[in-house]
């Protein structure tokens, strides 16, 4: 019920900032804390590192996860997808020695797995949590089986292999802008964020995603192809998992079947949550997720700089998620 009392413009602005744009408030707060703890925070190297780390782990996936969550779905298979695709991708690279063929393979395989997820949910009428849980378990089992516990290593660890260096440069190479080196993953992450922002705001697909997440029945009655929309969001997230696998493999150069991509689903979902999306679907912004991803890395980065024991960093990240999502649930309650 609306508040009938007169409010000043400034009051409205502040209320809006804390409710609808809570992610901006959180972001600024975290930056201030990070600067206080780590005097080198604003060094270009540090910033570039944060972006590169984001892009090669959960940054891109979180963009797809935003779509999935806005459509009222969830995907907990992304981490295992990355493990599976990275493992097979490296195998393929070692045989074909072509990094571009590997990229193509990774993206295609991600697309196939994502589409499969989407089909289970849309056509199989399975709850997304269960469908993707099954895919998560299966994908991890398959890659564990092929890896037999050991890692998949690019060129068997032989740095003299002809493609070794060129593949390493995928994640560590970059271009120079005003004397600062901008890594390829950073460029990809920023570019994709812009693309996804435009898709969500300015295309039919984006509008359909919000419509389906808001109310499936109403969306259907408005002529939205609900099944196709659901399949699309899972498929797109699969593609992003594929792209991430390529970058991730390049950064690690050796991927362990058992723990590659571990916790990626949780980190991606957390980034979306911190970014202010409604967990029940219908509302959420790419810019929120973009900042959410960075916040996550900044927190880690800062905790390391502050010498917080590694095992405890998770607890602090958890606390931050709770605070961010509490802010958001207050907003939802007021509705």
């Amino acid at each position: 019920m609306p508040n009938k009392r007169q409010q000043t413009d400034a009051g409205i602005f502040i209320k809006k900032l804390f409710t609808q744009y809570s992610y901006i408030v959180s972001f600024v707060l975290i930056i201030i804390i990070a600067m206080a703890v780590n005097p080198n925070f604003f060094r270009w190297r540090n910033i570039s590192n944060i972006f590169t780390q984001s892009a090669t782990t959960t940054g891109l996936i979180a963009l797809g996860m935003t779509m999935i969550i806005c459509a009222g779905q969830i995907d907990i298979s992304v981490g295992s997808q990355v493990a599976l695709i990275s493992g097979f991708g490296i195998e393929l690279l070692n045989r074909t020695e072509s990094i571009w063929l590997m990229l193509l393979f990774c993206v295609a395989m991600g697309g196939v797995i994502g589409t499969f997820n989407g089909l289970l949910v849309a056509k199989g009428r399975m709850p997304a949590m269960i469908a993707t849980l099954a895919v998560q378990t299966s994908a991890r089992a398959i890659i564990n089986h092929f890896g037999q516990g050991g890692p998949f290593t690019v060129a068997g660890g032989n740095a003299n292999a002809p493609f070794y260096e060129s593949f390493r440069m995928v994640s560590s190479g970059g271009i120079s802008v005003f004397g600062n080196r901008v890594s390829y993953p950073m460029i990809i992450f920023i570019f994709m964020s812009v693309v996804f922002g435009v898709i969500m705001r300015r295309t039919k697909l984006g509008k359909h995603i919000y419509a389906v997440g808001s109310n499936e029945v109403s969306a259907r009655m408005a002529g939205v192809n609900v099944d196709r929309t659901k399949i699309m969001v899972f498929a797109i997230t699969g593609l992003l998992c594929g792209l991430t696998s390529w970058l991730y493999s390049s950064r690690l150069m050796a991927v362990a079947a058992a723990n590659a991509g571990n916790q990626f689903e949780m980190d991606a979902i957390a980034a979306v949550a911190i970014g202010g999306a409604s967990m029940s679907g219908g509302r959420g912004k790419i810019i929120g997720t973009f900042l959410g991803v960075l916040m996550f890395k900044i927190i880690n980065n800062t905790l390391v700089a502050a010498n917080v024991p590694t095992f405890l960093t998770g607890a602090i990240s958890g606390a931050i998620i709770i605070v961010a999502v509490l802010l958001q649930s207050q907003r939802d309650k007021r509705k």
Binding site: S218, M221, G281
Partner: peptide, 8 residues
């Protein structure tokens, strides 16, 4: 339930 898309 069937008409409006209430988040939009």
């Amino acid at each position: 339930e069937r008409g409006i898309l209430n988040d939009l």
